[in-house]
Write a protein that binds this DNA or RNA. Structure first.
Length: 569
RNA sequence: CGGGGCGUAGCGCAGCCUGGUAGCGCAUCUGCUUUGGGAGCAGAGGGUCGCUGGUUCAAAUCCAGUCGCCCCGACCA
């Protein structure tokens, strides 16, 4: 392909709208352009990458026994009413009406449509298991789209849905998908980590996310290198240490004056006591009224765990005014003693004695507060956020905490959709049962962006050959030199005969401009044809990450290129 | 939705405070020179200053409203 024949507008300067490196580079390399917030056009170069990701995904899904279908993007409200999500999904679901005032939505995901499709057709256990997938645009009216295609409102996703007769079979399918996902992200050349995850909006029994390791990731994950435990910190289990002061005698509760001590650090240094002995009391508003939650002073509370423990839809830290209303004291001095709120205690504080807690009164704390003695505890639960170096819940080894980009998410759904929508089949005994479902998503555009996020340098993108838009950047320096162009044409053919995709820079630009664009586009191998070298029958070959080019015989260049690409795949 | 910021040429920005001819760099076009890491010189084209209303002799500039975009917090592929 000649560069003069591909719509490839590269940018020298970074558009002000871009924040993260992948977004900047995708704009600069002419891969995408923004149309509206969270809505993007994919240009030829970007689309080539997207198609490569899709191809890998297709091959692996097909190999895993899934079959491709194509479901509608515009979906009738009735289906969503059946599953109950018309009410539950919220404003992220873009709703619209047709000319006859009938309600529809743009599909943010396709459980409803697929379940509806299957329920009419699957009647017998003999039809199972079945796994269908599609690759298609989704629309989610995100509160805050950002980072280019990484978190767009309209985005391409591969979504697969499985149907099994029972749990063991469904779990086998889940496992097969898990393995297929690992192969997909490996083939995309990504450094990734599968983690245990929450089920969120989609629901279901359990799930895993596939995280591409990158500092700009929006998720935080905890990984144990010894036993392999890995989880999103949203739900990573913590392993309690020995309770603070657990072997002491209970001392008498005592109110002390602690002027100007709003934070745990201030309290602990004022009282000359370890922050571990200070217990934070946090006041939350929930749909079921205010609640108090306690964690050790040097810990952070995990709101996800709290909402799970309370079994509520949300829990937000209460506003200062509300705190005063609930506890009688100002923010920063809340404590469990004598308050009229149910107290939830982090498991790490279970058995702790003689803690420092707020006194619900400005500039005062209690010392020697012991749960169960000086205040009542409604429930003990794992409520704290796992941090760097915390012990693995399985094997106690210190865990790593890193940032990740969620590129894939798989769920074992169980029967929630099939029951709600009446997707039933007859088992061997002739008994009617709901289908056991799973669903499996991959953000293809996000995967492409994540690959850039993980592989770039100060000059531009560094593609792995598997998903690179082209394999070889073929660059005749002087396009007005007939010999150079003849050599370039010939070499292009030879490279293509070897199955390589070639982008020939046939622009009448100065060499510097071409070199800069070559680096920006990040194509794995660059071959430069200069008139001087050509007279000796030589061309220059350089891998994108290599420091210096090497000279090669023109006749051998295609074979060398093939070797290089194979070696770096 | 709450908090912060920005809308001036295709891109990056200045001008606004203190109202008076709309500017700079890159890109584009023409010519000459140059020709292996984003060339030099000379010239040219391109703007309803986001939009609406107000104040004023006069508004990019002041005021009000509105729309859009970006960043930080509650979501998720």
């Amino acid at each position: 392909m000649r560069i003069s024949r591909i719509y490839l507008p590269t940018l020298r300067e970074v558009p002000a709208e871009a924040e993260v490196i992948s977004h900047k580079l995708m704009l600069r390399a002419g891969m995408i352009r923004k149309v509206a917030s969270g809505i993007y056009t994919w240009l030829p170069l970007g689309l080539r990458v997207l198609r490569k990701v899709e191809r890998i995904v297709r091959e692996e899904m097909n190999a895993a026994g899934a079959q491709e279908v194509h479901l509608p993007m515009v979906q009738p409200a009735e289906l969503w009413e059946e599953s109950g999500r018309w009410e539950k999904y919220g404003p992220e679901l873009l709703r619209l009406k047709d000319r006859r005032d009938r309600e529809f939505c743009l599909g943010p995901t396709h459980e409803e449509v697929i379940t509806d499709l299957v329920k009419g057709e699957i009647k017998s256990y003999r039809d199972l298991p079945l796994c269908l997938y599609q690759i298609q645009m989704k629309f989610r009216d995100e509160i805050r789209p950002r980072f280019g295609v990484m978190r767009a409102r309209e985005f391409e996703m591969k979504d697969a849905y499985s149907f099994d007769a029972d749990d063991p079979s469904a779990e086998r399918t889940y496992h097969d998908m898990y393995e297929a996902y690992k192969r997909i992200f490996k083939r995309c050349g990504l450094n990734f980590q599968p983690v245990e995850a929450q089920t969120g909006q989609i629901g279901g029994a359990f799930s895993h996310e596939f995280m591409v390791i990158a500092d700009t990731g929006e998720d935080t994950i905890a990984v144990c290198d010894k036993c392999g435990y890995a989880a999103n910190v949203e739900l990573a289990e913590s392993r309690p240490e020995d309770p603070v002061g657990g072997d002491e005698d209970d001392k008498a509760l005592e109110k002390v004056h602690t002027p100007g001590t709003h934070t745990v650090e201030q309290v602990s240094s004022f009282l000359k006591i370890s922050p571990k002995r200070v217990a934070k009391t946090l006041i939350f508003d929930t749909p079921n009224g205010p609640k108090a939650a306690m964690v050790r002073g040097d810990r952070e509370l995990n709101e996800e765990k709290l909402t799970a423990c309370l079994d509520v839809a949300w829990a937000h830290l209460a506003e200062p005014m509300r705190i005063e209303q609930y506890t009688g004291g100002p923010m920063g001095f809340s404590g469990p003693v004598g308050i009229n709120l149910p107290v939830y205690l982090d498991s790490e504080l279970d058995g702790a004695r003689n803690l420092v807690v707020g006194a619900n009164e400005g500039d005062h704390h209690y010392i020697n507060a012991t749960p169960g003695v000086d205040f009542q505890v409604k429930q003990v639960a794992d409520l704290r956020l796992v941090g760097e170096g915390d012990p693995c819940p399985r094997c106690a080894t210190a865990m790593r905490v890193t940032k990740g980009i969620e590129v894939g998410h798989i769920f074992k759904l169980g029967t929630q959709y099939s029951e709600a929508m009446g997707a039933l089949f007859l088992d061997k005994e002739g008994k009617e049962k709901p289908l056991v479902m799973g669903c499996y998503g991959i953000g293809t555009g996000r995967t492409a962006a994540a690959a850039i996020e993980q592989n770039n340098d100060e000059n531009g993108i560094v593609w792995k050959p598997q998903i690179a838009p082209f394999h070889v950047y073929l660059m005749p320096i002087n396009v007005n030199d007939e010999d150079s162009m003849a050599a370039a044409d010939k070499l292009e053919k030879e490279l293509e005969e070897k199955g390589l995709e070639v982008l020939m820079d046939d622009r009448d630009e100065r060499a510097g401009v071409k070199f800069k664009d070559a680096d920006l586009l990040g194509i794995p191998l660059r071959i430069v044809i200069g008139s001087k070298n050509l007279k000796q029958g030589k061309v220059e070959i350089k891998g994108r990450t290599e420091e210096k080019p090497r000279l090669a015989d023109l006749e051998k260049a295609a074979a060398l290129a093939r070797e290089f690409i194979d070696a770096s795949t």
